[in-house]
Design a protein around this nucleic acid. Structure first.
Length: 482
RNA sequence: GUCCCUAUCGUCUAGAGGCCUAGGACACCGGGUUUUCAUCCCGGCAACCGGGGUUCGAAUCCCCGUGGGGAUGCCA
């Protein structure tokens, strides 16, 4: 039988990385089994309608590389794939359940408090026991046009067990299950109902979703049983957690930092890096490798590697992974993307951008770091004389002064103003003076950049900022040292 | 409150009774290469939540605690 998985996001306008990871695993499960990956939009909550939200879903899936075989834009006979367009499909199923005694009309107001029966533990969900209404009473209320919802009627004897591919055997006593609403007052199905109907109708074989649904799964199974439908395989995923400023961990949300795919991309993370990172958040290849392309993941993916415990999202590791992907980038693509993240600097440095970009690529963790790394090339930042001190190189402001004075005439005489010849001059000088190369480089670097860490060395910097600018900065350094 | 799930370095994880003196990665620290930093290479720090069992033997199985998370919506 063909494996069919689905990703069923609700159109909220952004893609939470936890959702994206669910999509990824569902996609991987399908691809690794030669199956189908279906996209379904769960927009049953009309109050939450967000303009263009479906576009965001398409764009995200697209840039993440998760292609779908079926969806709103690709009907393979199971459509429509948008729940609001399927509205008419759900009611008959709900009514079927009413007839078979697995559901009932409930005429209670939203605000009514659930009644608690003395001596019994269960919560039935319906405030005034509408399940006990006689057929005549129901008909009368229906005829009178009283608004209603349809609730699932739970048989509260015994327990429900099911097997999850990740969590294993899970048993829940039916007495703790409430009579959840299937059809809302506005006629829309709830997610709880729609997902069961749709998963069945779309012949989904493996339901991949977050573990927050683990405790409501028995209710879904009762529904499948009431219809006499086959229950799908379940793959519940551990949650992704975030750590807040106080160090507390909870379900990853905005207070933990950027959690949407779009924002992460805006912040300079490459889609491939994000995918690779989240793939490993809760799944292990059982090898020592960490860097995997989507295609490689599709080949290696196995439900066995899925972890049960929740995982904390670690931005540091994401940064590292991003740097790995940056290094692998094609240079042309890199320099163009780098320019976009430092428009002001690029405006000044575009003539030497190739050189700047090549210095950047091997030492970059995130594109948003670029402006800070190269601003000194545009304008020298203020710095302290103290910076000229470097213990290991035995460098001091005085030694820097001496070196600059000695080397300036040689720079003046330099005909080919490029990194290679300029570096040669410095190397040569160090050798003649029997000075540590590091000592020479240190002083010049500080004088040129005003900072201890720079992409590239003095030679590269001088080439990039040019002759005139280089002399100006060296002279300024001399004056500063005094 | 009740129910469900979960528990290996700070973080992501490997480990399915002896291969564990618990492996890898990020972060951190140190050393080397390099024209500084970075890259790269080498090394180091660092964990089986606690208590009972079962067993010749437990990180691995069972029970009880404890910690953490989730559910308990006319949200999904």
């Amino acid at each position: 039988m063909t494996v069919r998985t689905r990703f069923a996001p609700s159109p909220t306008g952004f893609m939470h990385v936890g959702n994206l990871r669910t999509a990824l695993y569902a996609w991987l499960l399908a691809r690794s089994n030669n199956g189908k990956f279906i996209l379904r939009i769960e927009d049953t909550d009309q109050a939450r309608f967000v303009e263009n939200a479906v576009e965001v879903i398409y764009n995200t899936l697209n840039s993440a590389g998760l292609d779908h075989d079926e969806g709103p834009d690709k009907d393979a006979g199971f459509g429509p794939y948008v729940q609001s367009e399927r509205k008419h499909l759900y009611r008959p199923f709900a009514e079927e359940l009413v007839k078979s005694g697995h559901a009932y009309y409930c005429f209670c107001e939203k605000s009514e408090e659930p009644t608690t029966e003395a001596g019994t533990v269960f919560i039935d969900g319906c405030p005034s026991r509408c399940a006990d209404l006689s057929p005549a009473e129901v008909k009368a209320k229906l005829d009178a046009g009283i608004p209603y919802v349809i609730r699932q009627k739970i048989d509260r004897t015994g327990s429900v067990s099911f097997r999850d591919l990740v969590f294993g055997e899970i048993t829940i006593e039916t007495k703790v299950l409430d009579d959840q609403i299937l059809i809302k007052q506005d006629g829309m199905p709830t997610y709880n109902f729609a997902n069961v109907i749709d998963d069945h109708l779309m012949q989904i074989t493996h339901v991949v979703r977050g573990s927050e649904y683990l405790s409501s799964t028995p209710k879904y199974n009762l529904l499948y049983q009431a219809f006499g439908w086959e229950i799908p395989q379940y793959v519940h995923l551990p949650l992704i957690m975030g750590r807040d400023a106080e160090g507390n961990v909870s379900k990853l949300s905005k207070r933990h930092g950027s959690v949407s795919f779009e924002t992460l991309v805006e912040e300079g993370f490459l889609p491939e890096a994000i995918i690779n990172y989240i793939a490993l958040l809760g799944w292990s290849s059982k090898t020592d490798r960490e860097i995997f392309s989507l295609a490689e993941l599709a080949e290696l993916f196995n439900v066995e590697g899925l972890n049960k415990a929740a995982a904390v999202f670690d931005y540091d590791k994401l940064r590292w992974m991003n740097s790995e992907y940056i290094k692998q980038m094609d240079f042309e693509a890199f320099k163009n993307k780098a320019a976009k993240f430092a428009p002001e600097q690029f405006a000044v440095l575009q003539n030497v951008w190739d050189k700047v970009a090549s210095l950047l690529q091997s030492r970059l963790e995130n594109f948003t770091d670029i402006p800070g790394m190269i601003q000194f090339l545009v304008e020298q930042p203020p710095y302290e004389v103290e910076l000229f001190n470097h213990k290991k190189n035995k460098a001091t402001p005085e030694s820097a002064k001496e070196i600059i004075n000695d080397v300036m005439p040689e720079f003046k005489a330099c005909e080919n103003w490029n990194a290679e010849s300029l570096t040669a001059i410095l190397m040569n000088y160090a050798q003649t003076k029997e000075m540590k190369v590091g000592k020479v480089m240190w002083g010049i670097r500080i004088a040129l950049s005003g900072q201890s860490v720079t992409p590239g060395g003095p030679g590269e910097i001088m080439e990039i900022i040019g002759r005139e600018n280089s002399f100006a900065r060296l002279k300024a350094a001399l004056e500063k040292i005094g």
